[in-house]
Design a protein around this nucleic acid. Structure first.
Lengths: 298, 298
DNA sequence: CAAATAGTGTCTTTGAGACATTATGCG
DNA sequence: CGCATAATGTCTCAAAGACACTATTTG
């Protein structure tokens, strides 16, 4: 608190005591969470390992707008809390889980993104060990479900012009849960020229995903794919003790490509996880060593 | 627009027509910009190359709170615009520059970050070629100035406990412009254990930097340091034509370490810039080839 | 032994780091 | 020629990619 006096002769203390917020139009601010987990897919074959699948949690809307579409879990930020605290509060309400990996993603602010009124969405990426969460999340009446995620590039067009180029890329996002299939095409337009770079994202078509949440999910996947390669965040998707094959599968479903075992084990096994004596007793093949997270302090 | 009917018997269209926003308390949302440029430092020696310095633009506050402290340029988001549009609008007002590299950083939402009222800040990173901007920015009475940035780690303490560790790191941010020196110490506390990871940032002490802007500046520098290594954003800090030595200096002042010439030229010269015939006629040494940005379409 | 997975050895390729060497302009 | 910078050559070392080989378990 400084003692300087402003042009009206007030100190900071006096100014603040007299402060009256103006009557400007303000936006509502919500938090929306993209909660990922990596769940085991049941294998039909008799002694094969289960395969992992990347899932996100969605909640079916029971009111307008986007009635009976599926939306990201979230809610409005309340006074006296940060967006992160709001996210943690909602997370606990909707999944019962505390102590989760949480990272702010991006603030979406298109004034028309909510047809009712001006609502910004501060989005969060959350990662959760699927063994920790009960399948039917949502303790109240809200219908919540885990959807398997798939994102693939379906078209790309590059148009080079005088001092730059325009690149249009379409991504197809598909979310499935049993019979239910949701999908959306998100178009990314990158326009670069001598005077700058401009990125535009449009939801070209949308099947059952509420608001701009298809776009938010794409953004979250992009971030996850990037960060998984130079951090240890993937460890938040496996239980406390896990095998290297499990971890490799998690990397594979995130990145969408198969990885080669030996270099994977060198890179992540050596650097990120600490081996222990524990072994798991399986059926039909050599049992594998269990690993645990190693705390990297740098 | 779907035709489903909700529990009150309304279609979405009817619902929206009747929609009346509730009377909740809402935050104000501001955008704050960390605008970097890399300016040539005048060399005293008679025929040496100029050295680059990393600068950010700050504006002196002429009213409470933080009267006569220095703040990031910014302003409030208005209805019918996105935060990005607000940032571009403010940027044009305060520096006269359009067509600039702009990237959303992070939304700071501590409800006490502005002593007046509840104000969230959606922060942006902007990069500008210093040759494009006049030294005395700010077309109105506001006093704007470019400050040289320096950020260094001053202390680190790691405390390992049962199931994890707590790491405390202090960073000293120093901003100088001629006689004026601003500084702040930002403390980062990383707490990891079996139940999760928690990051906390505190401004330990602060000399003349308004609000939580010291923290925002640190965040921006961190992002810039990271992205410079795997993207070509650094090219937004140099003029259209530039030498590889200039570019290397830009990398060096961002990363804070000297780089070795040969590998730098292999990595960035080959991958990111396209050579042209142009040469510059200098004084006292071999003239260097000028390079231009190469448009990477992938 | 067959099936299935666990775990390692090693060759190749790539690229960063480090340093030396050559080139070119000016006075 | 001397100074200062430009530009390239090359050796080393670390890590990723690719693939083959060995090791264990159950039935």
């Amino acid at each position: 608190m400084n003692e300087l006096i402003d042009k009206n002769g007030l100190t900071e203390e006096e100014y603040l005591a007299a402060y009256c917020p103006g009557d400007y139009v303000k936006p509502s601010v919500a938090v929306d969470m993209v909660i990922f987990s990596a769940a085991d897919q049941k294998m039909e074959n008799y002694r094969k390992l289960p395969q992992k699948e990347l899932k996100i949690l969605l909640i079916k809307r029971s009111g307008h707008p986007y009635l009976s579409c599926w939306a990201l879990p979230g809610g409005f930020v309340e006074p006296d809390e940060t967006t992160e605290e709001a996210a943690l509060r909602e997370l606990k309400e909707e999944t019962g889980v505390e102590n989760i990996y949480l990272e702010q993603l991006y603030t979406f602010s298109d004034p028309k993104r909510d047809p009712r009124t001006w609502v910004m969405s501060c989005s969060y990426l959350a990662l959760i060990d699927s063994s920790k969460v009960n399948v039917s999340a949502g303790d109240d009446a809200a219908l919540a479900s885990w959807f398997t995620v798939s994102l693939e590039m379906t078209a790309r067009n590059i148009d080079e012009h005088e001092n730059g180029f325009t690149r249009t890329t379409d991504y197809l996002l598909t979310l499935t849960d049993g019979d239910i299939t949701l999908s959306a095409t998100v178009r990314h337009i990158l326009d670069r020229n001598d005077t700058g770079t401009k990125n535009t994202y449009q939801i070209i078509n949308n099947n059952g995903i509420a608001f701009d949440h298809a776009r938010i999910i794409c953004y979250a996947l992009e971030r996850l794919r990037g960060k998984v390669q130079y951090t240890d965040i993937a460890l938040n998707l496996v239980p406390e003790y896990f095998t290297l094959t499990e971890l490799q599968q998690v990397y594979e479903i995130i990145l969408g490509t198969p990885l080669i075992k030996a270099p994977f084990r060198r890179k992540y096994g050596e650097l990120l996880a600490e081996s222990t004596e524990m072994q798991t007793s399986d059926a039909g093949h050599r049992p594998s060593r269990l690993f645990k997270r190693k705390w990297m302090t740098d």
